[in-house]
């Protein structure tokens, strides 16, 4: 019985009744606070995705119904020329929009990073479009693109009477009008992220490159931009989900026209579900949008996990 003293000390006496209610509250508070949003995310992301998937395989029309029809909705979707245009528009738009916004955003960030005067003012100007909703952007640019009272008319009234600028009203170029507007809207966002990245780079690196005899261009290409590579990915991922959801910009700018030339999947889904009462096929289209997003995001998340593993592996 040599351990009695130690044992006695470990047993809590009646004076110490376990953790107090305050301690217990501190412990469960984070769970309490996070629970609603976790539950909401779970329901919205997983439950509704699975529900949509199920609807897309059903014979739902004006209202959801649960007669199973297999891939009929998908077949009918892909046989529709308007959907095919919408889907290819999505890829065309995403590619140009993301690359364009990132290129211009990066260029602006680098220019501002050269210690320009009135930096705060420039930043505000370039970030401003982001504060404007896509609907407003779309409406304003639809006026600018309008041949009768937009840019064309302005330039003509300045004397160049055969100046032509009717991007949005030509079915072959209307998609580029949307791309340009999208880039205008979000290159400021890309710039802000890139600028923050550039500012976080150790200034000694730049000095070392200077002593190493690297030109400014080479310093950016070989030293600075590789350091902020993760920001490129972050910007791209945010832009991709902007691109795939594109709805309001197109709705305000061209309403899918001229003809069906600027139809986008989101607009098409809206039409099917709420205008034409084909919820089943609409759900199939929505699932195809999800697939487009997954094509990009799944490899990305694998990449993130892989990189994380590799880094922790090397310590």
């Amino acid at each position: 019985m040599s351990t009695t003293a130690a044992d006695a000390a470990r047993v809590p006496g009646p004076a110490s009744p376990g953790p107090s209610w305050r301690e217990r509250l501190t412990r469960i508070a984070p769970i309490l606070v996070l629970a609603p949003s976790l539950a909401a995310s779970f329901i919205y992301v997983f439950v509704f995705t699975i529900w949509t998937l199920y609807i897309s395989l059903s014979n739902s029309s004006l209202l959801p119904s649960y007669g199973f029809v297999g891939l009929d909705n998908y077949a009918s979707l892909w046989s529709n020329r308007r959907w095919n245009i919408a889907y290819s528009n999505l890829f065309l738009f995403s590619a140009f929009y993301i690359v364009g916004a990132m290129a211009i955003g990066l260029l602006l960030a680098i220019l501002i990073d050269q210690k320009v005067r009135g930096e705060a003012a420039w930043r505000t100007i370039f970030l401003y479009p982001l504060a404007v909703s896509f609907i407003v952007t779309g409406t304003v640019w639809s006026w600018l693109y309008n041949p009768v009272d937009g840019i064309q008319m302005l330039v003509r009234s300045l004397g160049w009477t055969n100046f032509n600028f009717a991007l949005a009203s030509d079915r072959n170029t209307a998609i580029y009008a949307i791309i340009i507007t999208g880039i205008w809207q979000s290159s400021g966002f890309a710039m802000a992220l890139f600028l923050a990245g550039l500012r976080s780079v150790d200034p000694d690196l730049v000095k070392a490159a200077q002593i190493d005899g690297a030109s400014t261009f080479r310093t950016y290409r070989r030293v600075i931009l590789p350091v902020i590579a993760p920001i490129f990915l972050a910007v791209a991922v945010v832009q991709i989900q902007f691109a795939i959801k594109t709805f309001d910009l197109v709705a305000a700018l061209t309403r899918g026209g001229p003809g069906i030339s600027t139809t986008f999947p989101a607009i098409y889904v809206y039409d099917l579900m709420f205008q034409r009462g084909q919820i089943g096929e609409g759900a199939a289209a929505a699932i195809m949008m999800l697939a487009a997003l997954a094509v990009v995001l799944v490899p990305y998340s694998f990449f993130v996990v892989w990189r994380h593993r590799r880094e922790s592996h090397h310590g």
């Binding site: 150790d202 000694d204 690196l205 002593i211």
Partner: peptide
């Protein structure tokens, strides 16, 4: 770059990538 010098920084300033 034209001074014919080499420098070691306190932070080392090695190019991380």
């Amino acid at each position: 770059k034209d001074r014919d010098i080499a420098m070691v920084f306190q932070s080392y300033a090695l190019y991380p990538t």
